[in-house]
Structure formats: C-alpha cells, structure tokens
Nucleic acid binder design. Sequence first.
DNA 1: TATTGTTATACTCTATAACTATA
DNA 2: TATAGTTATAGAGTATAACAATA
Lengths: 145, 145
Amino acid sequence: MPGPAHVGTDQLMELLSVSLGVYYADFNAAAARDKLTASQGKTLSVLRHGPTPMRALAETLACDASNITGIVDRLEKRGLVRREPSPGDRRVKNVVLTPEGEHAIDTIRANMHTTLAGLSTLDDKDRATLYGLLDRVFTARPTDT
Amino acid sequence: MPGPAHVGTDQLMELLSVSLGVYYADFNAAAARDKLTASQGKTLSVLRHGPTPMRALAETLACDASNITGIVDRLEKRGLVRREPSPGDRRVKNVVLTPEGEHAIDTIRANMHTTLAGLSTLDDKDRATLYGLLDRVFTARPTDT
DNA sequence: TATTGTTATACTCTATAACTATA
DNA sequence: TATAGTTATAGAGTATAACAATA
C-alpha cells in the first residue's frame, strides 16, 4: 500500500539523494562520538565482513589505494585494526578487525538513532520489501567497471 | 512479491550501508567527470531547490558553517553559483544557482549510470513502493535535533 | 612486466576558535 | 546579546605520480 500513484526516475533520484544525506549525517554523527571520521567508520564497517587486503579496501571504499595507508595507519595506532602478512602473496597485507574494532563499529551502528527510528516504523513485510528493492537496484548487478 | 521471507534490522542496516555506498561512489564518479568534488556536487544538488542562505546550506550538508565559505568560493569562481544579498536581513547571503550550475548538476545526475541502470529494473509499481518506503524511513520525521 | 603497498605532494574537506557586521 | 558570514588553523581525506618489493 505505501507510495504515491506515480513516481518518476527524477523524483526517486532526488529522494535517494536526500535519504543518503540523512543516513550519512547519522553515520557521521555516530562515528564522531567515538572520535572516528566517516572514512574510518566505513573502513571498520567493510572489515566486518572479514580480513581484507589494502587494495580490496580501496576498491570497496571507491578511493585511490594510496589513501588506505593513512586511514589504516590511524586505525592501527588506536588498536582498532591490525595489518597481517598474507600467506599466499608476500606483497599483500590483510587488514583485520581487532575485538576493539568490532566493538567500535557495533557502537556506531547502535548510535544511528535517526536511521534506527526510521526503520522501526516498518513492519516485517515492509522491511522485506525494502530489502528486496534495494538489493535489486544496488547490489544485483556488480559494478562492471 | 519482492524480498526474502524475514529481514532483521541488522541485515537492513547492512544493505543500506552497501546501497548508499554504491550510490555515493556513483555520484562521486559523475561529479569527478566535471572536476567537481562530492561536497561541491551535493551543494549544487541542494541549491536545485532554490536560493539558500549560507547557514541553511551548512545545516543541510551537516557540516560547520565555516566550511561553506570555501565550498561556495570555489563554485563561485567557476561561475556555477552566485552570492546575493538578502533583502530582509543584511547579514544573510543567499546562494543562487547560475544556469551553468543548473547544467552541471543535471549532467552529474545524467551520468550516474550505475544508479540509473539499477532503477531502470523497477516497474512503475516498484518505484512507487520504494519511494514510499524511503520517504517513511528517512524523511517522514524531520531531524529532531 | 605487472601488481601491492608506500611515500611525497598539492588540494579539498572538516571542526574549532576568534573575528566583523549586522540584528 | 545573539546571529550570519568570514578568517585562521590544524588534522584528515583525496588523486596523482613515483618508488621498492614481490610476483
């Protein structure tokens, strides 16, 4: 039942832009509570999936590989991540989340009050619908670059 | 019909994180084609709604007011925006999009190929549903900070 | 030769604090 | 006093180019 009668691509793009702005501000504020920048928080978020080489981090974060060195340096200095040599390829360093790092990203997500409050207005069916739609729009087709 | 049987808040938060990451990377790449940063592109996007005081720009972009000076400086130097005195309050400056600025943000949106391709997989009904859900989650309740 | 991670550089973004001109 | 915009500053993010180690 939700949604207006007709929605053009322009309107949807505009709402996506606003939604991203709200989500990003929420994430940024939650990260800032723990003195983390958005890029640092996003990096921890990616590492939640498991150990990741520097180069793969750069691709997922959509930035140049040279930037990852500094970001991981600062996270490592605070004990939130660790660099480990890759067994298979001695050029590669895998970045691993420490227990403190896991706790940090969990805290950030728990502090995203605006987004969590927004999601709490959805019932089970709506959540499943939104999940399915976002999946189709953004993750169904991997970036073919 | 879309969507899995049951979706928890954690899963939805994770997919939102990934989805908005894809959207942001797409926006950033499209802006970079015109030698614009993400913040500059976002500023043009906000100005699409009409003339906006510097202070209001800072609130919408969720950053400190002092940053807006530099961002608007660079956009103004390129002829994409203009500062205009506010008739009612001589302290206020309204930032206005020039025709070149309008063209720039339109070009950025037209170049967001990944997002546009994803949206093109939705039919009219799905678009309306996604619109309604995003609206409820992110814009129904104004930020009560 | 190609790839991974790093360094050096220049520019942009960002928050904080202090300032000015208005209100 | 309070608010809008600016400036100065320091730290962080960013792309580009060049480099050492490894493949």
